[in-house]
Computed example of a mutant assay.
Amino acid sequence: MSSARRAAVAIVVVATTALLAACAPDPPGGVVGLVIDSCDPGNDTGSGIVVAPGLALTSAHVLAGAQGITVLHGSRSLAGEIVAFDPEMDLAYVAFEGRAARSLTIDSDHVDAGDTGTAWVVRDREVVPVPVTVRRRVTIRTEDIYIQGETLRPGFELDADIRAGDSGAAVVVDGRVAGVIWARSNRFENRAYAMDAVRAAGLVDEQLRTGELGPDVDIARCH
């Protein structure tokens, strides 16, 4: 390849990279990673989103049986504590100390089939945007996180490349947190499911208001 042609190829590569970077959405400042000292050997991981100063929304099964929680926010590692936990809807809140991050509003009323957005996941301490398309609203008949009771979980069926360890990631549509990732499909490639961050949040919102988890919630129980 001639020097001129190599230079032309290099220019195209640089221009394409710049274009992709310009098109990629900016990550919300409140995206956090979670590292859980769990019942199993090693650590479990997940993601979350700051919805108020010092408060992150995530998936309950990520936190089940946690003996310690580390919240990864940027370059910082902060101690976290479960302050709300619903094993049926698979939602939870983690409180942590640190400088206030930009929080996002929770709102799912505007979401409809065909809408596009981003699932913000943390992989190896890096914030990764995963494009999502809402296939439809769903109410899924499933089991609680302990697989001991049946529940109806309101949420969304998504087209998204969700991987193991991405649970708890916020699904952001039009700048608002509409859902929380809880599972990927075992039958269909690039198919995933998210809890509705509004319609599934009755218990965790009540726990936040009262400051009590309630006698029936055992956060030390492994799933």
Rank of each mutant, 00 (worst) to 15 (best):
P215D: 15
D159R: 14
V172H: 08
I145R: 07
S108E: 08
N186Q: 12
I181P: 12
D37F: 13
P215M: 12
E126C: 12
R141Q: 14
N186L: 14
V173H: 07
L213K: 12
D124Y: 11
V217R: 10
E212H: 14
S59D: 09
G155S: 05
G68M: 01
N186F: 06
G149Y: 10
V50F: 00
R6D: 13
W120D: 05
R184S: 05
P129N: 02
A192T: 09
L57E: 06
D37M: 11
V50R: 02
A101W: 00
E97L: 01
L63S: 02
D174S: 15
F85T: 00
A100N: 01
R184D: 10
G42K: 06
V9L: 05
G202L: 05
N186S: 07
Q148N: 15
D107H: 03
S38F: 12
L208R: 03
D40W: 06
S47N: 04
L91P: 06
I11F: 11
P154L: 12
D174P: 11
E150D: 12
D90C: 04
A52I: 06
T210F: 11
D166C: 04
E157S: 12
R209P: 03
A200D: 02
R76Q: 06
P53T: 04
F85R: 02
P27G: 07
V204W: 08
G80E: 00
V134E: 03
T139M: 08
L203K: 09
G80Y: 00
E88F: 12
P215E: 15
P28E: 01
G54I: 00
V128S: 05
G211A: 13
D205V: 03
E189Q: 13
N186V: 07
I49E: 12
R187A: 14
A160G: 07
G149L: 10
G202A: 04
H223S: 15
L63C: 05
A119F: 05
H223M: 08
A60D: 07
I162E: 04
G74D: 05
S167P: 11
G80A: 00
A100T: 02
V94G: 02
R76Y: 07
I147A: 15
E212T: 14
C39A: 00
I140Q: 14
E143C: 11
V127S: 01
D26G: 13
A8Q: 09
A194Y: 00
L72K: 09
T142I: 06
D107S: 08
R221Q: 06
S103M: 01
V138Q: 12
G54A: 04
G179Y: 01
G65F: 09
G179I: 00
A100C: 02
R5V: 14
R125M: 12
A164H: 08
E189Y: 06
Y93T: 01
R184G: 10
T105Q: 13
D107R: 10
T133N: 08
A101E: 00
V134D: 03
G149N: 14
I181L: 15
D174F: 09
P129H: 02
V171M: 15
D44I: 06
T133G: 10
L203M: 10
T45I: 15
G114S: 07
A64Y: 07
V198D: 09
G202C: 03
T118I: 07
G33A: 08
R184Q: 09
D124R: 15
V172M: 13
N186E: 14
R176G: 05
A220L: 09
G65C: 05
I219F: 10
E97R: 02
V111Q: 04
L72F: 01
G155L: 03
R184V: 03
F96V: 11
E157Y: 12
G202Y: 04
V14F: 10
